[in-house]
Structures are given as C-alpha cells and as structure tokens.
Design a protein around this nucleic acid. Structure first.
Lengths: 355, 355
DNA sequence: AGGCCCGGCCAAACCGTTTTGGCCACGGTC
DNA sequence: GACCGTGGCCAAAACGGTTTGGCCGGGCCT
C-alpha cells in the first residue's frame, strides 16, 4: 500500500486540498495573476501540508528553460581521459561557477564538448553554455551560434576581431595586460634575454600572449625566442628547457604560460646546471598549488578563476534573463611573486635566508 | 520572418513529413513498438532532413527522469567559498565522474548540499545523487533516503554498521586496507613510533583510519599518538607538527590523512630541525600534485579518485536503470612511495643519489 | 470456414506545469 | 439603467514527448 503515498504531490493535489483551481495555485506561486491574500494563504498552507514542490522538469517543458547552465570541460575530451591539465585552474573555476550558479538559482552541469562524438543528450537541455578558452574557428562556438543557444566564453574568441560587433559575449581574461605584467616583472628583476614558452592551442591566451610578447620585445630591441609545446604533453616543460638551452641563446628569464610547463622547465634547468632564480628567472602564466610548494616556489600569474567564473555565470544569467550585461568590474588577474623570480642577491653576498 | 524557421522541429513535424503518426516516430526511436523496416527508414530520413532531436525535457517529464545525476560538492559550502581543500581529489573525481556519466548517457550536475540554505530547485531535478564522504548521521543521506531519491555514497556512511542491511549503497574506498598499507610501509622502513594526523570530519575515512591505527598499534604494542586538526584549517599540518613535538614523544613516522596536512607537517618538522625522511618518515593519506613536487617529494596513498568516480557513476546508473549493481572490481587505491618515506640509508654511507 | 494470433499502424490519454481567454459579480460613470 | 473596468477565479489549451488500447488485415491452425 505504501506505493500510494510515494507519489509526490502535484499542483492538482494542492488545488484540491485548498479548494481552488490549479490556475490559482500556479498564480500564487508565480505571482502572475491576481489572487486574493486569503486564498493565497489557503494555497500555501495546503502546499506546505502536502510537502509540495513544483516539478522542475514540467516547468522546464512549459517555459523552455530548465534552470541549468552547462560548463564545457574540454579537457575531459583529452586523449588520456584520466588526465586533466591545469587541474587547479579548472577545478577552481568549476567550483566557483557552481557556487555562482547556485546564487542565481541555476544548476551547473559539467559536460564534454557537445560537438564531440559522445554528445550527451542531456547536455542540450541546458539553458546556456559557458565555454572556456575558445579557439580560432571554434566549432562549438559556431554550433551554439547557429543553434541560437545563449553562451558566454571565457577569453575572447580569437581571430574574429575583423568581424567587429559580431564577436560573442565573453569575460575578459586580460591576457594582454597580464603578459606585460609578467614580462615587466622579469625585466625589472634584471632579465634581458626573456623567452616565452607557450602551448599550442589556438586560444586567446596563447595567441595574445605571443603577440604582446613580440611587440614587447620589439619595443625593447630584444630578439624574441618562443618555444611551443602542447599543453597536454607530459614533460613538455622539460622538453622546452632542452630546446631553449640547445638553441644557443641561453635565456635569463622565461615566461611559461602553463603551470605544468613552468614546473618541468625549472626541473629541466636544474638538470642542466642552471640555477633558478640566480641564473634564470621563471614566471608561470597560470597559478597552481604545485607552484606554491615546488622548490624553489614558482612565481605566477593568478588568473583568479573564481572571479572569472563568477563573472561568466553572471553574464550568462543576465543574458538568459534578458537583463543587460553586468558592468565590467575591477581588473582581474594579478602577479604572485615567489622565489623563482625573486630579485637577484647582489654578487658576493651570502645566499642564506635573510631575516 | 526568420522567427518561423527558428522553432525547432518536433516529433509532429517529423511524423507529418514521413506520412506516419507520432506514435510511429516515437517507436522507431525508442525501439519500443513494432515498426516495419521500410517505415523506420522513412522516419529516420525525415528526422534527419529536419534536423530533429527529441526534446530531453519533454522526455523527462513523461519518464520522470532527466538523464542527469548530481554530484554533491560539499566543499563548496565551506566557510571560505573560494577555497577548496583537497582540490586534486575533488577535481579528479568530478572530471572522471563527468566522463563516466557521459559514457552512460547521463549528464553530471555539480550541486552544493541540497539540505543547505540555498537549495537549488534545479538540483532536485536530477535522477540520482552521488554523495562523497558522508558523515555520521548525515542529514543529506537522511533526506535522500526519506525522499526516496536514489543515491550512492563514496565511502560508507559511518555509524550504521549496527543497522545491518539498512546501509546505503556505496563505493568502497577501502580505508581499512589502505591505512594498514601505509602503516606497514612506515614500519618496514624502520619506524617504531608512528603517529597519526587526522581530520575532524566524522566520515569513514577519518573514523576507520583511527580505528585501524589503534588496533594496529595494539597488535604491535605501540602506544598510539593521534592528532586531530580540521581538514579546512590552513596551516593545520604545521600546527600538528608542533603538537607532536611538544607532546614529548617525538615520532619517527607519521601518517597524515590529508595532503595539505602532510605538506605542512613536513615544513613544520623542517623548521624544528627534524629531517624528512632521515629523522621522521611521512606518508600522506591522499595524493595531490603538490606532494609530487614538494621537496622532499611526499609519499602518499593514491585513492584513485578516477576509479572511485567511475564506480560510483556505474553503481548509480545501474540503480537508476533497475539493473543489478556492477560486480566489485579489483582493490582500488595504492601506495605511492616517494622520498619522504624512502628506506633509510645504512649509517655511514654517502647520501647522494645511487644509480 | 472459423477462430486466433500477430505484425504494423494509429488516436487519444497522459506527464505536471503555465498561460490564455472568459466568466461573474461588483462598483463607478455617464 | 446601460456600460465599462476590474478584481478574483476557473476551464482548457498548450508544451513535446511516451504509452495504452484498439483497429485492421493476413497467415496459420483445426
């Protein structure tokens, strides 16, 4: 007999119990129609007695919105499915996005690229998408655009500057400012032969960093030296160190865009007898726990994924609600100086820690 | 005029175009009724021409299932909302869970504790829940149980052993075996005064580890020495080191359940002049990138969150599909030996690396 | 020949909401 | 007194699928 009581109460049950129509119940909850205060009270107590909660799916069917946004985790599609690069960044981003979504009354769904082979049907049920680090001619962006599904990218979609106003709404990751920040910091520390280690994804982060780096070098009459290694390549940083040293012009400063690569780089330098930061200073372009605990600790750009996530969610929520986009806030992302780029001790002085 | 073409095609459009009823269209896709092969073909091409995809929400309304499971991220509710402890574990878990869910045709929703203050309506739309690290008298478990919502926990719900068959379905994290593994390893390395540093959450991991540790000590006639520090306490490991040393009986081996604490512990020991692993060996109970790159590198138990996540998703999916639970697989979780617990060099021998 | 089963198809009910259009009574306006 | 506006309520039509029950005709058995 218990199966009788197991059915969750519907709006009809509430209506019956309150002695009104379902319309009235719907109205009292949505605040849409006109319902007398006394009636509202009756409805509310009836609903409460029954433990009624509106069915989100039925609502979704009717209003064509579920209250769920999707975060596309492209790293999930990497060749090694059990491997996530830039774990810190993604995890901090996803966690903060979930919290921000919650605050907007939305759920956060983690999906792999819906243009990929295993397109999850459920993924398409979401009201909007957050796409991190879109690449040039991004198929996902194209798909979302043509399907008319609202989305927000984190970082601009590169290679569209010519299109003008056609650019998709995005959260600014300020890659230009941050690159300059890192390079200036290395320069201020005394580095005069600064190399760049970048990933191969054609996203804004990589592309703009390279562009800014080259302009920056030209401005200072420095010959740029760029090494490209795939983001997801294990030991990529190590390899980059080798390539930089073998190339002849040994750098005295390196800006490595990926935290993993920065780690490998430092290790690679150590193996070849170069001391960090004494012989070569290193700054990573993305912060991670591992940089904090490495020996030496490694300086980095903290992109503030939490803040980016919050902004992305807010922008998307505003879009979904037909509200104007939130105003741009303070500049996001900052430099965290650690041992790997600490200013050189004056020559001839003891190397021990100073009070 | 474009708004006309913008409506996505429904099952009715397909039916009309194929010259059949909607029932037939539904049947050809679900494989439920009997539909002649030729008719099926007509329907499929019609659907393809129209770019038809069934509406997940409408399906969900009828079948009472959306194809989405929820992963409860309790760390999101921590006091500092921008802080996740054991980032590695959670991120690896969530990523793998999303992939596994995808493979089952399910979406993965990240939600905060639905019993919490900000209960997201959408959260309740999910078909089932994955609850990591349930605690004694877990309110969430109680809520899910009473609401009849299917769920799977990762790690047993502690304090229910008396209930017998009443225990909730769970994925075994094998905390007993792993604790013994770590302790035996310390013992084999020569440690004879082994301390335990544990968190304060009353989950299986902490509780069982303590229990096994105490039994293990009794068996070897060793006086147990346990230090408790909250998981989310920054600098908790550091504090633990202080407490252990101030207590008088300086340990020569420590098993610290949280990776953060292990890190702080090593740092704390170093400050007080204790060398790791020479004076005291350390093993962490949870692996993380930071342990891999710390100096010295720190041994740990790799819980294999990816495998746990996969199992949790599969178990939940089976439950949702009314299928029997998947068979238990190989033992999961293993010890990763690093420098912090390397066997002592025989006295009088050089300390340099050996080939 | 009659009865039965079964393959192939369809019309209609149903899932739990929201929204539209209308009904009724009441009060104010001319 | 006819008219209109409006506050309060409701019945019914969506929303886009799935499932039930039934209809029809042909082959097989007796």
């Amino acid at each position: 007999m218990r199966h009788v009581s197991t059915r969750r109460p519907t709006i009809r049950d509430v209506a019956r119990r309150a002695g009104v129509s379902v319309t009235t119940v719907s109205h009292t909850f949505s605040g849409n129609g006109k319902v007398a205060a006394a009636t509202q009270q009756r409805v509310r107590t009836a609903a409460h007695d029954l433990g009624y909660h509106p069915d989100v799916i039925a609502q979704g069917l009717r209003n064509n919105r579920l209250g769920v946004i999707a975060l596309v985790a492209r790293q999930l599609d990497a060749l090694r499915p059990d491997f996530l690069y830039d774990v810190d960044y993604f995890s901090r981003f996803a966690g903060a996005a979930a919290v921000a979504a919650l605050a907007e009354g939305l759920g956060l769904m983690l999906v792999s690229d819906p243009t990929g082979p295993r397109a999850a049907g459920a993924a398409l049920a979401s009201d909007g998408f957050i796409v991190t680090e879109p690449v040039v001619d991004d198929p996902l962006v194209a798909m979302l655009t043509s399907a008319g599904i609202p989305f927000v990218t984190v970082g601009e979609v590169p290679g569209r500057s010519a299109d003008g106003p056609d650019t998709a709404p995005h959260v600014d990751i300020e890659s230009g400012r941050l690159t300059a920040l890192a390079l200036d910091h290395l320069w201020d520390g005394g580095a005069r032969r600064i190399a760049l280690v970048t990933g191969t994804d054609r996203n804004e982060w990589n592309l703009r960093s390279v562009a800014v780096y080259e302009r920056w070098c030209a401005h200072r009459r420095m010959t740029p030296s760029t090494v490209r290694v795939p983001e997801e390549l294990d030991g990529g940083g190590h390899q980059a160190a080798g390539r930089l040293l073998d190339a002849g012009a040994v750098p005295d400063g390196v800006y490595a865009l990926t935290s993993d690569h920065a780690l490998g780089l430092v290790a690679g330098f150590a193996e070849r007898g170069l001391r960090v930061p004494d012989d070569v200073r290193v700054v990573a372009g993305s912060d991670a726990e591992s940089l904090r605990s490495a020996r030496p600790t490694i300086s980095s750009i903290d992109l503030e994924p939490e803040e980016l996530a919050r902004r992305a969610v807010e922008a998307l929520a505003a879009r979904l609600g037909g509200r104007p986009p939130p105003p741009v806030g303070r500049p996001v992302g900052h430099l965290v100086v650690r041992a790997s780029s600490a200013p050189a001790d004056p020559p001839g002085q003891a190397l021990g820690p100073r009070p």
